[in-house]
Amino acid sequence: MDTEWSQLSEDWERVRWARLQAGFPTARSASETLSMKEDTYSAYERPPEASKSTRLKDQRAIQFGRKFKVSWKWLLLGEGTPFDDVRSPAQDRVMAAMATVDEKQQERVAAAVEALLKAG
């Protein structure tokens, strides 16, 4: 198992590593799939001392985490591993709410969510 990720102390390093492990060989390929300008995306992979560097914030970490299939908390803070739970904060809220109701109610909620998602 590749443990290179455990040596990455900066968010920009983690973003780059996540992109590569997700199969995006270039910043351009990642930016296209994220519907971002290449320069905008690339700024997240630059060290702070570099020109046009951008620090990672919560919403971008969530977006990148989803796309690269890694933990957004790991991307942002370096806590845990990239393979920890990759749910978003919204998914965490739904899971917490579902845990407070019985199984029959959970089934009704799940059906309603599925219907909403299908409706677009």
Rank of each mutant, 00 (worst) to 15 (best):
S53I: 15
L56M: 03
S29N: 05
Y44N: 04
S42K: 06
Y41L: 06
D58H: 14
Q63H: 06
K37A: 12
R28I: 12
A61C: 04
A61W: 00
T54L: 13
T26C: 10
I62W: 01
P47D: 05
D39Y: 03
K52N: 15
A43R: 02
R46S: 11
R46H: 10
G23V: 03
K67N: 05
A43G: 13
S51W: 03
P25I: 10
A22V: 03
F64R: 00
Q59G: 13
T40F: 15
R66M: 08
D58T: 13
T40Y: 14
P47A: 06
T26L: 12
E49R: 05
I62V: 12
S42I: 00
F64C: 01
A61E: 03
D39H: 04
L34V: 01
A27H: 13
R66C: 03
I62Y: 01
D58K: 11
S29C: 14
T54G: 11
T33D: 13
S53P: 12
F64S: 01
Q59E: 13
K37E: 14
T40R: 03
G65E: 00
K67F: 06
F68M: 04
S42N: 10
E45N: 10
S35K: 09
D39K: 05
D58P: 02
K37Q: 12
A22Y: 11
Q59N: 11
F24K: 03
A50P: 01
T26Q: 08
A43C: 10
K67D: 06
F68E: 01
G23E: 09
K37W: 08
D58R: 10
A27C: 11
P48A: 04
Y44H: 05
T54P: 05
S31I: 07
S35C: 12
S51Q: 09
S35G: 14
E49P: 11
M36P: 13
K52W: 15
T26E: 10
K57W: 06
A61R: 00
S51Y: 09
T33N: 11
